[in-house]
């Protein structure tokens, strides 16, 4: 019985000490803002305290992937618990326009007008932008051999060597699919290119796995987006990044005010602050993110957008045709896998 006694005491002490670290602050006034975000944890940890210091408003963050954040907000629709969306993929955000309240940020004039198209009539504010790219592993593929175009990835020599995140799971992967159809046409010829690429591809469950898998040498090349790829480069991984010569899209991620937000004033202050020059400069310098603002330099080592061949990517079209396009993609997967 003595052993039990000791365990009991230890347990009590542990239970008594532990909650000390977790005092709950649930004061429900405008002194706080609840931010639903898909931004990386490290970014949240940097920006949260800065916002608090600047405004005196406490920012509470609920962090999850874009899909989870939006699902959560849909379920909470009748009694919203969040105030703003921050740094979610813009396409899915715009597709959920019924959850959003229109708002124009204070420095709206500084934001590149190109990115304001297809943003649910101004409900979504562009934040950072990221071109879709090809990554390759420099140890497995020489620079000369590396695929310079999307079309090159359709060559059977890449069979089982390239990585692509499932278009029905990852938003950026769907953007890549829609970009390919923009370039090659949403017709038999365009879908043939998609099918040939999918024949070669290993299908991964999330977009972050593609650059990681290529960097680790699990795959020779992959279809992904710029900032995830550039983080691997910055970390020293043997990874090369290619801006496809047959063109690419440069979609933004977005912020928005949640309809029925409990702290609308604080929420608007957060939205203004999120796209302020101070934050955007920091994101570019420390976190390698390209800003949608016209007066922020691209992160170091990034190609200027003017040197990237951009295609006329129609976000509205991509958003409207999500279901039929993904279904066609799934049919291809059933056929080739």
């Amino acid at each position: 019985m003595k052993r039990w006694w000791w365990c009991g005491v230890l347990g009590m002490v542990a239970l008594a000490i532990l909650p000390l670290g977790s005092s709950v602050t649930a004061a429900d006034h405008e002194g706080q803002v609840v931010v639903y975000t898909a931004a990386q944890s490290t970014i949240v940890q940097a920006i949260g305290p800065m916002f608090e210091k600047r405004t005196g408003i406490k920012a509470q963050f609920v962090e999850a992937g874009t899909g989870e954040v939006l699902k959560r907000a849909q379920a909470e629709k009748e009694n919203p618990l969040g105030d703003v969306f921050w740094a979610l993929a813009a396409e899915p955000l715009a597709a959920n326009a019924d959850l959003l309240e229109p708002y124009t940020v204070a420095e709206d004039a500084k934001i590149n007008a190109i990115y304001k198209k297809g943003m649910a009539g101004g409900r979504v504010q562009p934040n950072n932008v990221t071109p879709m790219v090809i990554v390759y592993n420099k140890k497995l593929v020489s620079d000369a051999e590396a695929p310079k175009t999307w079309k090159a990835l359709a060559d059977p020599k890449w069979k089982d060597k390239i990585a692509y995140a499932a278009a029905d799971k990852s938003g950026s992967s769907y953007t890549i699919l829609a970009t390919l159809l923009t370039i090659f046409g949403d017709n038999d010829a365009g879908w043939k290119v998609v099918e040939d690429i999918m024949k070669n591809a290993k299908i991964l469950p999330s977009s972050s796995r593609v650059p990681k898998g290529v960097a680790d040498g699990e795959y020779h090349a992959g279809l992904t987006y710029e900032d995830a790829a550039m983080r691997q480069v910055a970390g020293g991984a043997p990874v090369g990044v290619i801006y496809p010569q047959d063109g690419t899209s440069v979609p933004p991620d977005g912020n928005a005010l949640i309809k029925g937000a409990k702290h609308p004033k604080a929420a608007k202050m957060f939205l203004d602050y999120a796209v302020s020059k101070e934050v955007m400069d920091l994101l570019a310098e420390k976190f390698s993110l390209r800003s949608a603002r016209t007066d922020v330099n691209p992160p170091q080592g990034f190609v200027p957008l003017s040197e990237i061949k951009a295609v006329a990517y129609d976000m509205e079209w991509a958003g409207k045709n999500y279901t039929p396009l993904v279904k066609k993609w799934q049919d291809i997967i059933v056929r080739v896998k």
Binding site: P92, D168, Y174, G319
Partner: peptide
């Protein structure tokens, strides 16, 4: 993936 889908799911 049907449930938690960035594009709204089914």
């Amino acid at each position: 993936s049907l449930f938690v889908n960035e594009m709204g799911g089914n």
